[in-house]
């Protein structure tokens, strides 16, 4: 790990200042001027691997009193960005009213990691692409812009079949962001030029020709809260995660479903996919195909096919098309059996 300067954030307003005009950072070429530290489960890991090399680390844990609480009202759920994954996952009202959120958190990582990692940090966790994490591979456009992508013709069993580009096929590794996508969450963001609120769907950027730019956050911007609107689809919601082993593993395919049924007829449905795409992926065409129809094996299968139209498998990940479709079918049919 490279040396860095350590600061503890005094306030949400002052924290972003660590990112501007950092003269001493320019002493070390090519290093990010600063990174925020919360749970540290991604940052410390990648600093040890020399994948991330911040010149300054700003510990935002002191901001927990302002951004560390959970509030539920008739209008919806508000989660502070510094709430730990385990705290949100074990919250009785979250489990009852927003099961897809609780399940996506419980099925992620390990108990220790969930005790450490925060909700805001979880959204920003970096890909598990081995060519990104292993610096002995020189070609990684995400780590070293313009160097190429070793995964394109490498071992790409874990890689994305949706939303990838010729410059990067890394998979977005998380689970929670998909649940937030399905529920149309918004994010409060504080930054050097004030605060703003954005839909979760606009946080992550598809790789395109700039895979190193992963989000729409400006330097110094900090996610402070996550808001999830109430709706008739939140109770009948679930997260189905398919992986190589039953616990403590990243998704090969996953689906976050939120369903509003009127009798047997679909009034509204949200489908977000994980494990298969370069960013948290909303399958809007598949959703639209179900509106006004009964939810059964035939309609679910048709929707699942639609969700993977345009997928672009490589040598080792073509199985994800079938696996992803079956995951969507099973998740939809399971959701239909839940109480609304």
């Amino acid at each position: 790990m490279r040396p860095f300067l350590y600061d503890r954030a005094a306030s949400t307003e002052s924290a972003p200042r660590a990112f501007d005009g950092l003269k001493e950072a320019s002493l070390i070429q090519g290093r990010a001027p600063a990174e925020y530290l919360a749970g540290g489960t991604t940052l410390l890991d990648l600093m040890k691997l020399d994948v991330m090399q911040p010149a300054r680390v700003v510990d935002i844990t002191p901001l927990e009193p302002q951004h560390g609480s959970i509030a539920i009202s008739d209008a919806g759920l508000r989660l502070g960005a510094l709430v730990k994954m385990s705290t949100a996952a074990d919250h009785p009202a979250v489990i009852k009213t927003y099961p897809v959120l609780a399940q996506s958190l419980t099925l992620a990582a390990s108990a220790q990691l969930r005790n450490m990692a925060t909700l805001g940090g979880n959204l920003l966790q970096r890909t598990r692409c081995n060519y990104f994490r292993d610096t002995s591979w020189s070609a990684c456009n995400k780590r070293n812009p313009g160097s190429g992508c070793a995964a394109l013709d490498g071992l790409n069993r874990q890689h994305a079949i949706l939303g990838a580009s010729q410059d990067c096929i890394a998979t977005y590794p998380g689970d929670f962001a998909q649940a937030l996508m399905a529920l149309d969450a918004t994010l409060d963001i504080a930054g050097p030029s004030g605060s703003r609120t954005i839909p979760i769907a606009t946080l992550h950027k598809p790789p395109g020709s700039t895979p190193h730019i992963e989000t729409t956050l400006a330097p110094g911007e900090l996610i402070t809260a996550l808001s999830i609107p109430a709706g008739p689809w939140t109770r009948r919601s679930l997260y189905l995660k398919i992986r190589d082993r039953q616990s403590y593993e990243f998704a090969l395919a996953s689906a976050a479903i939120a369903l509003h049924l009127d009798g047997d007829t679909v009034k509204d449905v949200r489908i977000a996919l994980g494990g298969v795409a370069s960013v948290p992926w909303r399958a809007r065409d598949a959703e639209a195909s179900l509106i006004g129809k009964p939810l059964n094996e035939a309609t679910a299968t048709a929707a699942a096919r639609m969700a993977f139209v345009g997928s672009a498998p490589r040598t080792h990940n073509a199985y994800k098309v079938t696996l992803g479709q079956k995951t969507v079918v099973r998740a939809l049919l399971q959701a239909a059996t839940l109480e609304g």
Binding site: Y6, L37, T41, L44, Q112, M116
Partner: peptide, 21 residues
Amino acid sequence: GACTVLVDGRRTLACLTLAVA
């Protein structure tokens, strides 16, 4: 998980925790 300790009573991975923090 070999480095698991309790920090303020919560199980935590000591290898991914900075002492200064």
